[in-house]
Nucleic acid binder design. Structure first.
Length: 542
RNA sequence: GCGCCCGUAGCUCAAUUGGAUAGAGCAACAGCCUUCUAAGCUGUAGGUUAGUGGUUCGAGUCCACUCGGGCGUACCA
């Protein structure tokens, strides 16, 4: 319907030349009394035309040519808003559209033919995923869903590193626990991995190999076993949240393929690197950065920056049109270096969308729980999922803007999970399913033959809300904001519950009952599709 | 110190990217089940949008400063 208004404005621009190169912004007013769509163009042009906004609005409205079948009324309101009111018959056509498209309603082809890569989680296999990782995991997966709804072919990617210092410490930790379990006296350093899971891994090694590994290097069997066990665990945790990655990219491959070496040579050739104090420095100041950074340590080992840049170059080489990185706020200082590196490599960094999400403060009984994998002070994501279920976890992490520093009270989540808004949505869906079961016995069917009978306020508002679904998806995808889907669905469910309360189906006259069934069925489809994007189930019974 | 993020009802958070009277859910109070699921609905109460100034037709949103909180600020990742 936006398109229709834009088209009549376009026709008008031939007549009023000040509309020629003016972009027309239309929005759905908050206040339902202000119509279906609202335009602020008169206020914007008022200064330039030296007329009051209302005068400009008058002039525009009187020249607009439109069909009475589509537009019922156009009014000037407030300081000079032009409000459009659609006819009921035009508005309710959305029900037909939803019923025809079913599970596909809401999908668009805006970005059809484009490839996107969404990298998320990317935790190194040093321990189980914690509640702290939950937000990243859930939002990343949902973002991937959202992008595919607007037409992208999406790959979900997990980047990890099984070399380096942390992994060595991990291997050492397992070996010490192994020796300990075999009865040897050990001293376990404070900065080693303290978690119980390390002992479990050591025990498994004893079960499998006995004491034959006593003399082994911790970097061998111990590290490898730890990595495999932990990775299996991480994948299970993700799978419990219905998250599956398409690609697991090992940093090691960058070395094997010579990508690191190539990049190093290139930077040297372009005079963007230099040697100082035995280390190799990346000349970030040359590229507009704050200060130069070390990319190869004096020990000869690269810092994380070099592989990070090389890794992102591969994403370009792999042909993605959109590259999404989802990081926690602890990474906010690192991505500018990566972008600088990509620019140095001649890549178009516009293709990259870096999303930084803020941390979730975990509370238990009102106390802040500080999480640390190394100190084994954490609540695992698995424990949470088991406790409250995948739907609640997914909904909870999706429902807020990633830039918000959200609080998560575990005790509240466990004891009062009924109050989670996800149940409100699911309940609306279940209620509709229940009605649809019931009408089979009443010889009623879904029919759009008499949608004109839907004239009550609750019906009109529900229809209006249904109309907004597509646009909400497009906006959410464009802004990379999953929480908008939640906000929308909550509003939709509210309108449905009101409709349910005031507009009965059983007992109404047949044509009206069937029109209402059509409306309810359309609502069910939209709720289900919305929940589908969020990765939350739409139960038929509750 | 510097950089990024945040500060909205008692609590958890929205607010169509600068729009009209700042909205939901919890919690509180008062109502609604002999008819499609009461995990619902109706109503009441709750606000100087941390503060001060600025930009303009119009600011929770943009700019400056102040206060308060989170994350960074490695030859760790």
């Amino acid at each position: 319907m936006k398109n229709y208004i834009l088209s009549i404005f376009n026709d008008l621009s031939n007549k009023l030349d000040y509309l020629q190169n003016q972009s027309i912004l239309l929005e759905v007013p908050k206040n339902t009394g202000h119509g279906d769509l609202s335009c602020n163009i008169a206020m914007i042009l008022s200064k330039q035309l030296k007329k009051s906004p209302r005068e400009v609005a008058e002039e525009i409205i009187s020249s607009l040519k439109y069909s009475d079948n589509i537009i019922n009324d156009i009014k000037i309101a407030g300081h000079g808003f032009i409000n459009f009111y659609f006819t009921d018959s035009f508005s309710s056509k959305i029900i037909n559209e939803i019923l025809e498209q079913g599970d596909n309603f809401g999908k668009t082809k805006i970005y059809a033919g484009k490839k996107a890569n969404v990298e998320f989680v990317s935790a190194n296999p040093t321990g189980p995923l914690t509640v702290g990782h939950g937000r990243n995991a859930v939002v990343g997966d949902t973002l991937a869903n959202l992008l595919s709804w607007v037409g992208y072919k999406v790959d979900r990617e997990y980047y990890f590193n099984n070399a380096g210092r942390q992994m060595r410490v991990l291997g050492d930790s397992v070996k010490l626990r192994y020796l300990e379990l075999l009865g040897e006296k050990i001293t376990f350093p404070e900065d080693y991995y303290q978690g119980e899971y390390i002992k479990d891994i050591a025990q498994k090694l004893i079960d499998e190999k006995g004491d034959t590994l006593k003399k082994d290097d911790p970097d061998g069997n111990f590290k490898e076993k730890a990595e495999n066990e932990i990775f299996d665990d991480i994948k299970t945790t993700l799978s419990n949240l219905k998250i599956h990655h398409d690609i697991f990219y090992n940093e090691k491959q960058l070395y094997d393929d010579g990508k690191i070496k190539n990049l190093l040579n290139e930077l040297k050739y372009k005079k963007l690197s230099y040697e100082k104090d035995g280390a190799v420095w990346f000349k970030i100041t040359e590229l507009g950065g704050e200060q130069d950074k070390v990319i190869v340590k004096a020990t000869g080992e690269p810092t994380y920056r070099l592989p990070d840049i090389a890794y992102h170059i591969t994403k370009f080489e792999r042909g993605y049109d959109l590259i999404v990185d989802l990081f926690g706020s602890d990474h906010n200082a690192t991505y500018p270096d990566v972008l600088a590196g990509l620019k140095a490599n001649g890549k178009n960094t516009e293709k990259i969308k870096i999303i930084i999400h803020q941390f979730v403060t975990i509370l238990e009984n009102g106390q802040i729980v500080k999480m640390s994998t190394r100190k084994a002070n954490f609540i695992t994501l698995d424990e949470l999922t088991e406790e409250v279920g995948s739907d609640v976890v997914r909904y909870f992490f999706n429902m807020r803007d990633v830039s918000s520093h959200m609080n998560f009270d575990l005790s509240l989540a466990k004891t009062q999970s009924d109050e989670n808004p996800v149940f409100y949505l699911q309940y609306a869906h279940a209620r509709i399913c229940s009605i649809l079961n019931m009408i089979k016995d009443e010889k009623l069917k879904v029919s759009t033959d008499h949608l004109e009978l839907l004239v009550k306020n609750e019906e009109k508002l529900l229809i209006k809300k249904l109309r907004q679904f597509k646009e909400e998806i497009e906006l959410s995808a464009r802004l990379f904001e999953t929480h908008r889907i939640c906000t929308y669905l909550e509003e939709l469910a509210t309108h449905f519950h009101k409709f349910y309360t005031f507009c009965r189906i059983l007992g109404s006259e047949k044509n009206l009952a069937e029109a209402r069934i059509a409306l309810a069925t359309a609502t069910k489809t939209v709720i289900k599709n919305g929940l589908q994007i969020l990765g939350v189930s739409a139960p038929e019974k509750m």
